[in-house]
């Protein structure tokens, strides 16, 4: 186990290195950061001087080498826009996204399991078909449209929900300002998390249904029926446990999709998290921040996948997490 974690850690470092290299090589495609720093009428000469000062004119490998040297000391460079170390900016924005993802995950888990199981047990019932139909509608409505509709109905028309931002925050410690502990903060969380859930929930309902139906057809469930076990016990203990495996895997992978959708959701709700930061960084060509963001996300992915693999090994003893033959 320990060796496994050490190896994964080394792999994470490798992933971050690759990301930084690719990120560095494509950053010029985002645009010229100097453009966002100066007014439009500033002369070319002044802009050139600024580029020189920021070291943007140096050859690629000199810039990259400088970056690596600093990165060894935990310094990923300074965000042009926030005028602060990029790491600080990312850490200060991360809690917002984490809280949003956390609440969304809870919503997804709470709703997808019963709905998915129901649809699997009674696939022909009208309600099941309704759920499955609704889930398709959920997937095909773009998340920003859902988001703006929510704002329109609950903030503008009914006036019961706040339209943007995170509301009142409580300082937990370090970079963490939380909206989970105030009424106002929770109210601000409701609509963004519903918008995000609308995309993720259908996928999980369908997945659980599909896996569960498969398991219900399997021999050992038939055996259980034959043995005369109670239906509830068969459904929730025997069948459901075996549907979990693929659901966990897909869940880990879907985190990527979730991050992609936080970008859209956060920008509609002016939710000051990582997704919002990413859009801002792209728009302002804040390349340092962008590369740091990518590295951070890469690290998170390795972390999540390591966790998924560990859980996987726990749930399914046939899979040895050492991955060795």
């Amino acid at each position: 186990m320990f060796a496994f974690i050490v190896r994964r850690f080394l792999q994470a470092v490798f992933v971050m290195l690759v990301i930084s290299l690719i990120g560095f090589s494509i950053q010029h495609q985002i645009g010229d950061p100097v453009r966002d720093l100066v007014g439009i009428s500033v002369s070319k000469k002044e802009r050139e001087a600024l580029r020189e000062k920021l070291g943007l004119n140096d050859p690629f490998f000199i810039q990259y080498g400088r970056f690596l040297k600093k990165a060894l000391h935990g310094d990923l460079g300074r965000s042009f826009f926030y005028k602060k170390p990029a790491v600080d900016v990312i850490l200060s924005k991360a809690p917002a996204t984490l809280e949003l993802v956390f609440v969304t995950s809870i919503l997804v888990i709470v709703f997808s399991i019963p709905l998915g199981i129901y649809c699997a047990i009674f696939p022909k019932k009208f309600l099941s078909r309704l759920i499955m139909g609704a889930s398709v509608v959920g997937v095909s409505i773009p998340v920003f449209l859902t988001a703006i509709m929510l704002i329109y109905i609950f903030s503008v028309k009914l006036g019961v929900m706040p339209s943007f931002g995170r509301g009142e925050l409580v300082h937990i410690g370090g970079y963490w300002y939380s909206g989970l502990f105030t009424w106002d903060g929770l109210k601000h969380l409701v609509m963004p998390s519903i918008a995000l859930t609308s995309i993720m929930l259908p996928l999980f309902v369908r997945l659980i249904r599909a896996e569960m139906m498969e398991v219900l057809e399997s021999e050992y469930i038939r055996f259980a029926w034959a043995k005369g076990l109670k239906p509830k016990r068969i459904w929730f203990v025997h069948a459901f446990k075996n549907t979990l495996l693929p659901v966990i895997t897909v869940g880990g992978v879907q985190l990527g999709t979730l991050i992609a959708f936080t970008i859209l959701t956060e920008s509609v709700f002016q939710w000051q998290g990582l997704g919002f930061l990413f859009v801002e960084a792209v728009e302002r060509a804040d390349t340092t921040l962008l590369v740091s963001y990518l590295i951070f996300v890469g690290f998170v992915f390795v972390l999540i996948n390591t966790l998924v693999d560990i859980i996987y090994g726990l749930v399914n003893p046939m899979v040895r997490i050492t991955g060795k033959k």
């Binding site: 992933v15 985002i30 990527g256 590295i295 996300v297 992915f301």
Partner: peptide, 17 residues
């Protein structure tokens, strides 16, 4: 790990690249 690298870049960055 290649998949992790790929996922971190998301569609947006791949498109830019």
């Amino acid at each position: 790990r290649l998949a992790d690298v790929q996922l971190s870049f998301s569609t947006l960055m791949v498109a830019i690249f």
